[in-house]
Computed example of a mutant assay.
Amino acid sequence: MAAVFLCLLLSLTATLAVRRQANLEVPAFSAGKLVANVHEPQLTDASGLAASQKFKDVIYTHNDGAGGPYIYAINATTGEVISTMDIAMATNHDWEDIAVGPCGENSCIYIADSGYRSGSSANTIYRVQEPDTLSPSLTLAIDSTATYTWSEDESQTLMVDPNGEVYLIGVIYSGRGMVSHLPASAWGSSTPANIETTQFLPIHTHHHDPVSGDISRDGTELLIKSKSNIFYWKIENGDVLTSLTKPPVEVPYHPTGLGEAICWSADGQSYYTLPEGHHPALYVYSRLGGGHGSSSVIGK
């Protein structure tokens, strides 16, 4: 009996040590703080969020399908809409997520028209260069377009790393979405790229998830949002796909209705969420110094 008890004790100690070690690698974040409600009459179905790499404290979002080919630039400290940007020659069949990352020597906004609407998916990603200035109304030209085919009906998660590599995650009930990488050869090609993989996200939820995600600007951290949770990964050696095979850590989330948008701040010191609906509430979650706070390891 003593031997059995000792084995159980050693097993529990080892488990706790692994959890502590995992948590030590993860920063803690504050509970969500309301920045402001975004008062833009045309922004009613926010889906996707991304931080500008050219303008301080500016984040981009867009409407879900049927919302027109428009990106809204928002002041992340006040919630004010600074600019409405019309993406010329683009179609919003069902835009689901947005990201900002490099494209050659420039900084580009990536838009995933990847949702399932009216019995079909566009399976298209638009890339536009960030403008040099922001004015109330802008028209941006498409820098390049990529199309793809795969086994999934839709993706609501688009992520871009510091090398301009693009990742998509399919929507699956229970959250274990298929994780895919878009080959660079897809850009500007007249032939859709096949991006099917067999890697699945190691999370479990009770909804069709995930709904959004973002890679930090320095490429070392990753957030993925489900309808009810936010999951965090450290990216090891710049390898996104391998890192996403590891168990994540859950970080704070303030539910505000149906939320399908998350992004890191440009400096990586906080993250933002924005829900759907009229006058959506923009929340910020700030990085805390030292310790691992309320983070908890999520098993496979």
Score class of each variant (00 low, 15 high):
Cys103Phe: 15
Ser135Lys: 14
Ile71Asp: 04
Met178Val: 12
Gly238Leu: 08
Ser135Pro: 00
Glu80Pro: 00
Phe5Pro: 00
Gly65Asn: 08
Asp209Met: 04
His208Lys: 14
Pro192Val: 10
Met1Arg: 11
Thr157Ile: 09
Gly119Val: 08
Val35Gly: 03
Leu9Asp: 05
Phe55Gln: 04
Ile142Leu: 15
Thr15Glu: 10
Gly291Ile: 01
Tyr126Pro: 01
Val240Ala: 03
Pro183Ile: 05
Ile98Asp: 08
Gly32Gln: 02
Thr84Arg: 15
Ser296Ile: 14
Gln129Thr: 14
Ala73Glu: 04
Thr197Met: 09
Ser265Phe: 02
Ile71Phe: 09
His181Pro: 00
Ser107Cys: 02
Glu96Asp: 11
Glu130Thr: 07
Ile109Phe: 05
Asn92Tyr: 07
Leu43Cys: 07
Ser286His: 13
Tyr148Lys: 05
Pro131Lys: 10
Gly164Ser: 12
Lys234His: 11
Ile230Ala: 04
Ile298Lys: 12
Ile298Trp: 04
Val171Gln: 14
Gly257Asn: 06
Ala22Leu: 14
Gly277His: 06
Arg117His: 13
Asn163Arg: 13
Thr256Asn: 14
Tyr253Cys: 02
Tyr271Ser: 03
Cys7Met: 13
Gly289Asp: 13
Ile235Gln: 08
Phe55Ala: 07
Arg117Met: 10
Pro255Phe: 09
Lys227Trp: 10
Asp161Val: 09
His206Val: 08
Leu138Ile: 09
Leu244His: 02
Trp187Thr: 06
Leu8Thr: 11
Ala36Cys: 05
Thr205Cys: 05
Pro102His: 06
Ser120Phe: 10
Thr133Ser: 12
Glu130His: 10
